[in-house]
Write a protein that binds this DNA or RNA. Structure first.
Lengths: 109, 109
DNA sequence: ACTGCTATATAGTATTACAAAGTAGTTGGG
DNA sequence: CCCAACTACTTTGTAATACTATATAGCAGT
């Protein structure tokens, strides 16, 4: 499904954090995963910008490892600040979700 | 609850469309309503820019009416294109929601 | 060599929410 | 009458973020 890119703002960062939190991973793999799981139009450039943003905000630990299939990979793991941010993200998401549902179901007086 | 403004991008337009769809309304009222229903930090400037965007995209019909309490109000109603857009919005929202839930519950192999 | 896949990086653009300030009409208190 | 408070709309500028497009590079198979 085609998703308006504006609807992904803020969401994609949460998704990337979530993906990293379940085990160390790297940009290319994250992109492939998202493309195969409902976010078909997300491109590499987007994921890499997010990863570099996370790094700049000190939410991740990075380790470079050689690959047997191509260039070296930069593996990401969440640090404590990253885990906190992820928790916050899901709380906000749940909250927005709740409010949206109520809004949709409510009528004018 | 404090919501990251990035998480509202795209969402607010849908909310405003939804609010208009349940009966003709105007900017100030929409702002008040949102502030009282989970979106406390949304300010007038934001709502008015959205309304003008909707107008520019020909999704609404506008009627100016005198108020007994202050300056004249600009009332908004959705036209057919606006209704379509609203339907699309909820479809995309539901889709993203589904994918997010699956993503949160999934683990690395 | 060339193609394709793996992998990272970055410059530029469009969109959008928010901050901040301004303009105006109406009402009620002093 | 003046001023504050509330109602109501508008506009300018800024920050954040996803996307477009492109570049770089390693490795494998033909």
């Amino acid at each position: 499904m085609k998703i308006a890119t504006e609807l992904l703002k803020g969401v994609l960062e949460g998704i990337v954090l979530q993906r990293i939190s379940t085990g160390e991973t790297y940009g290319y793999e994250i992109t492939q995963y998202l493309n195969a799981h409902g976010f078909e139009d997300v491109v590499e450039g987007t994921v890499y910008t997010i990863l570099m943003r996370l790094e700049k905000q000190h939410l991740v630990a990075i380790e470079k490892k050689k690959s047997d299939r191509g260039p070296a990979r930069k593996f990401y793991r969440l640090n404590v600040a990253g885990e906190d941010r992820l928790i916050q993200f899901w709380q906000q998401w749940a909250y927005v979700n709740t409010q949206m549902t109520q809004l949709k179901e409510s009528r004018h007086d």
